[in-house]
Amino acid sequence: MTTPNTFVYEPGDHEAEKASNSYLMSLIAVVAGLPLPIINLLATLIFYLGNRKGTYFVRWHCTQALVSQLSLLFINSTGFWWTISIIFTSEQITSSYIAYMFTAIVFNVAEFIATMYTAIQTRKGIHVKWWIYGDLTDLICKP
């Protein structure tokens, strides 16, 4: 899911710290964002906007942290509104709903572990590219 790569240049310590913080931001947001999934996206978006003018390494990782939230945003929003409709409307709990929640949990846990790993590696100045999101970031973020 994640692969360490060599970046186009050797990032400095201050860059590594900032880049790593973008992932920490999304980790903290996961906790607050579970009941309201949009918070995850907003937190990383604010961090991204704040570092838009940063160095390439920082921008690249802020972008990856932001786009990596997209899949979870869809998965968690669906789960959130499905749960709300069960609690407040005539919608009933089905095996399909429970299966969805399990799948959502697996994807959340996978993303959580990957984010944690990336935050640690990036802090050391190691460039970590995620599957899908790494390539997507390459397309969006240019030097």
Partner: peptide, 29 residues
């Protein structure tokens, strides 16, 4: 770009595949 689209498709397929597989279990019981 093609590579990214293909990867997104794979991710969606994995998600739906897992969901479909898990919904075959009678969780209500």
């Amino acid at each position: 770009m093609k590579k990214v689209l293909f990867q997104i498709l794979v991710l969606v397929a994995v998600f739906y595949g897992m969901w479909f597989g898990l919904s075959k279990v009678d969780w209500l019981k």
